[in-house]
Design a protein around this nucleic acid. Structure first.
Length: 197
DNA sequence: CCAGACGTTGTT
DNA sequence: GTCTGG
DNA sequence: CCAGACGTTGTT
DNA sequence: GTCTGG
């Protein structure tokens, strides 16, 4: 879920909302894809100030031999984030927020895929719970990257691998599709991408 | 011991 | 179908 | 997440 | 770096 999101506010607005300083040169973005630079909010627990600064979306653990693992680490499951090798160190001591004002889910009908946008009713900002890490590429360049941790099964314990829809749930209660039913589709993926140019 | 992975989604 | 890059 | 590639030889 | 599978 949440493989793309939106942060379409100007940096002063974001900084004021989250009471951060403003180190990142952020321009409004409507269709943020994995591996792209995003803005994250961090705070040293022993200090009062928060920082809004850039990171690549898709966490690259410090031990990675190349950056490609970042394409698979855009999200961490809340149920396992504390123990997975790629995330657990960050989970202990490198948490952050990923500010956003929306995210996208796609509904598939046969071959067609239609994006839907989700956000606050008043279009206000919110933030994903995040992790970050620091990686040194083979040339020695430091790359900071981040991931979000989200619960895929918020109300179920233990987390099942897959739960078939039950008739009593109306077929697909809790699925992204149920959330999208009756809503107005968003712009297509291509149109969304064009918004960033 | 070494070699290779290290992750999530959604689905039957 | 599956992997890679954005 | 989606979109686009997915391969080699040999050379103007 | 650390764990898992062979």
């Amino acid at each position: 879920m949440c493989g793309r999101y939106r942060l379409s506010r100007r940096k002063q607005f974001i900084a004021e909302y989250f009471e951060t300083d403003n180190e990142v040169d952020w321009e409004p973005r409507y269709n943020i894809a994995p591996s792209q630079p995003v803005g994250i909010i961090r705070q040293d627990p022993s200090r009062p100030e928060r920082h809004f600064s850039p990171a690549r979306w898709g966490l690259i653990p410090s031990w990675a031999s190349d950056a490609s693992i970042g394409f698979k680490t855009i999200n961490a499951r809340a149920e396992t984030v504390a123990t997975k090798p790629a995330f657990r160190d960050a989970f202990v001591s490198r948490r952050c927020l990923l500010p956003a004002d929306g995210f996208f889910e796609w509904m598939r009908s046969g071959k067609e895929k239609q994006p839907f946008h989700f956000g606050m009713r008043d279009d206000s900002l919110f933030a994903f719970a995040g992790l970050w890490d620091r990686w040194r590429d083979p040339a020695g360049t430091v790359i900071e990257s981040c991931s979000r941790w989200v619960s895929a099964y918020a109300n179920r314990s233990p987390a099942p691998k897959w739960v078939p829809p039950r008739e009593a749930d109306g077929g697909d209660l809790g699925s992204a599709e149920a959330l999208m039913r009756g809503r107005r589709p968003a712009l297509s993926a291509k149109e969304l991408g064009a918004c960033n140019r």
